[in-house]
Design a protein around this nucleic acid. Structure first.
Lengths: 243, 243
DNA sequence: GCAAAAGTGTTTTTCATACACCCATGT
DNA sequence: ACATGGGTGTATGAAAAACACTTTTGC
């Protein structure tokens, strides 16, 4: 902005459409899944695409992202408002969309597995698709999903975000599986435990609660997400970072 | 994007202007400086603002950022093309600019101190301003500068970006001062040295060259940036992270 | 000689890793 | 009984932090 707006006539330029795209992830059955929509219209008809839509005239991009997320997933406004939404980056290639100039602000969200993406309206055909080995997506959405996966992998090293993949009460084994799934690595259980419990505010024990996870084995005690948001000694993945 | 574009008429919506804003930093005399422009027009007249401008119809946001950077700093196209430009985030509040709806993609660049921002045209009134304790900036540019500072502080922990603040040949003391300036901390010289030299590809020695830095003292040997881009054992700042 | 800045070495402590081992539950 | 997953303890090794010390220059 700044200077060039001095003699600007709002309708002089060819207009840019500004949209949001959502890369919503969950961990299901030990695999990372993305929420996708099967396209029914002309460009890329039949391909998978990310949910998203226009920013309305009086909305910020984040507000638009939350609104679209609620519409696509059928989650209540209250739940969506409390979710952690992270701006990924903005995609602005002049030929992203063959129809017109579309600049899109991409957001990432991490949700627990529980909610099936049912819901009225747009959500009718939204589905969870395994993130590894999905084919060509519409537009540059394949790139967006790849960027989002990288970002999440890096974010869970320094932040407490991994708990947002879990239900309100979860076991440490479940939390560990989130890390293993996102990073595609195997972690040492005793050491993972120690690091997580040694980080103040990461997780807090739920009184005397426990849950049987795999059908067999000792029931694991339950934890909930703590008040901390950053991970002070970071939880680095085994092999070097993705940069 | 995706669905909502099905019946879209390019001129039906009130148009969004899409711009880029640049937060260009340098380290000068042990202080972090930002490149700013004194506004001469109506909104925020007389205030400092970030350089930036419109994305042209056939440009990506990054291309626009490089073009603007060349215009504002007077640096040659070749230099600007080789610079590391990083997309920060997109600012989209509906009332950022009182005149109309402007969505702006912010970029950060790190440059060495050498080049005085002279240059024809727009650069006439671009100046380096110390980043600590600058007053109110125009629009939401104060927020952008703060976000950019945070981001840079985090980036130099894991990447070799800090060398882009230095001239082509630099001493380890100069590199250390970059870290100290950006983080606002003091580092232990022997330990800093060790970490930097232990990271393969971070810096490479320049044959027998040396330079006298403070007027007195032993001349320091010179290094140049190495081929590495990521810092494998990260160079973490003393106190916990900014997150 | 002294101050200032570069560079080297060493010691201490902390932390990550890799295991070995015990506990509780379902079949 | 045994397989399966949860949980505890511990020895080893690498790395970060703290700091003492030497070197080379200008004044």
């Amino acid at each position: 902005m700044s200077d060039p707006l001095k003699d600007y006539d709002p309708h002089a330029f060819e207009p840019f459409a500004v949209t949001v795209d959502l890369a919503v992830f969950t961990v299901r059955e030990g695999r990372l899944h993305v929420l996708l929509i099967r396209r029914g219209q002309d460009p890329y008809e039949g391909s998978w695409a990310l949910p998203g839509g226009f920013i309305l005239p009086r909305e910020s991009a984040e507000e638009a992202a939350r609104r679209e997320l609620a519409e696509e997933t059928g989650l209540s406004e209250a739940v969506v408002d409390s979710l952690h939404l992270e701006q990924l980056r903005t995609y602005s290639g002049p030929d992203r969309d063959p129809r017109m100039r579309v600049v899109s602000v991409a957001y990432t969200a991490l949700v627990p597995d529980l909610p099936e993406p049912h819901g009225g309206g747009d959500a009718a055909h939204a589905e969870w698709v395994a993130a590894d080995g999905l084919g060509e997506l519409a537009f540059d959405h394949g790139q967006i999903v790849a960027d989002a996966h990288d970002r999440i992998g890096a974010r869970i090293e320094y932040t407490c975000l991994a708990t947002t993949f879990c239900p309100t009460a979860f076991t440490l084994g479940e939390l560990q599986q989130v890390y293993e799934t996102v990073w595609g690595t195997v972690l040492d259980r005793p050491n993972f435990r120690r690091k997580v419990l040694a980080t103040p505010g990461f997780v807090e024990p739920v009184a005397g609660a426990s849950r049987l996870t795999g059908g067999r084995g000792k029931p694991a005690s339950l934890y909930r997400a703590g008040p901390a948001t950053a991970l002070h000694p970071p939880l680095l993945r085994p092999e070097g970072r993705t940069a």
